[in-house]
């Protein structure tokens, strides 16, 4: 089994901060907007280096989305930064009308997504954002798995015209991908090859899927593990090819079971290649305060839960 390792844990939001600098240095049209969370989003260095291209909008996310749409009309590539809940639910109608329906080249960058936001609790733990954003026509949805990949994804989305939702998080997590990799939007990355079960994971759950894969390997189970960093457009070809061999699938994400990656893959497979599936996700509940790792354990989003789901789905396999 292909081994993955890391030398340090790093937060994905810092990857975003660096990616924004990377892309802004290359492309003078890139501008940044933030709703009073510059430090949390790691946008300070961008602000320092490009003060005339940074717009502090205050705690006014609806306005921020509209201003971003307007900037894109003038040829700019606006990156908006705030937490995932304020990036989506707070400003959904503005995103829908002024950005998605209007086909604006706005990159909505959302940090502190999911349970791993931690102690602030359910008010801030956005678990419905992938669903809301992938329902919008014209919107693309990218959820990178670690610091390096977030950095690459941040730059990559500027190369595609149109609205994007880029989702990342708060805590330090294993940084195991390489900056030398090409980040190809819409192309899932196969991390390990195996013929027994397909595991499709996104965001922070990708590392958990790899850990589950190591345990399963010891039990003689060979998993085909994918990092599905782009949820829309979904890499239908890779997913269908994988389940055609493994004949069963487990999905894993830090999101509600409704509307997320599992839903997207279930829809795809139901139409094209039905196989037994198990979904690792939050089961129709809000989160709560706690440490990130405690929350992931309590809400069933850890490597052990993925392994258990694999055991279940293998029993259902024909």
């Amino acid at each position: 089994m292909k081994e993955y390792s890391y030398t340090e844990k790093k937060d994905t939001r810092s990857g975003f901060g660096l990616g924004l600098l990377d892309v802004a240095r290359k492309n003078p049209d890139v501008v940044g907007l933030c709703a009073d969370l510059t430090g949390s989003l790691k946008m300070n260095d961008f602000q320092k280096e490009f003060p005339e291209r940074f717009f502090q909008v205050g705690i006014a996310e609806a306005n921020m989305m509209g201003v971003a749409a307007g900037l894109s009309i003038g040829g700019k590539i606006p990156y908006t930064g705030t937490f995932a809940n304020f990036s989506t639910g707070r400003a959904y109608d503005q995103i829908r009308q002024s950005i998605a329906y209007s086909e604006k080249n706005v990159k909505i960058c959302a940090s502190h997504a999911g349970l791993t936001l931690g102690e602030d609790g359910a008010t801030h733990q956005m678990l419905e954002d992938i669903g809301m954003m992938r329902m919008l026509p014209n919107m693309k949805v990218v959820v990178p798995c670690d610091h390096n990949q977030t950095r690459l994804a941040t730059a990559a989305i500027a190369r595609h015209h149109g609205p994007f939702y880029l989702r990342f998080g708060r805590p330090k997590v294993p940084n195991f991908t390489s900056l030398d990799e090409e980040f190809e939007i819409g192309k899932a990355i196969r991390l390990t090859e195996g013929g027994d079960v397909s595991i499709f994971a996104t965001g922070h759950l990708v590392w958990e899927a790899l850990e589950a894969g190591r345990e399963l390997y010891k039990q003689g189970i060979r998993a085909d593990i994918f990092n599905v960093h782009t949820i829309k457009p979904l890499d239908a070809e890779s997913i269908i090819q994988s389940v055609a061999r493994t004949k069963c699938a487990v999905t894993a994400e830090e999101h509600q079971v409704h509307g997320g990656l599992g839903d997207a893959i279930a829809h795809l497979l139901a139409e094209h290649h039905p196989v037994p599936m198990q979904m690792i996700a939050v089961s129709d509940s809000f989160g709560e305060s706690g440490k990130p790792h405690e929350l992931m354990k309590k809400y069933g989003l850890s490597a052990g839960n993925i392994s258990d789901a694999v055991s279940k789905v293998l029993k259902r396999k024909r």
Partner: peptide, 17 residues
């Protein structure tokens, strides 16, 4: 309620340009 925000963004783009 959305147009004034968009107009502000377009005006800022003009300033930058």
């Amino acid at each position: 309620g959305q147009g004034l925000s968009v107009a502000c963004g377009a005006a800022l783009a003009k300033r930058l340009n």
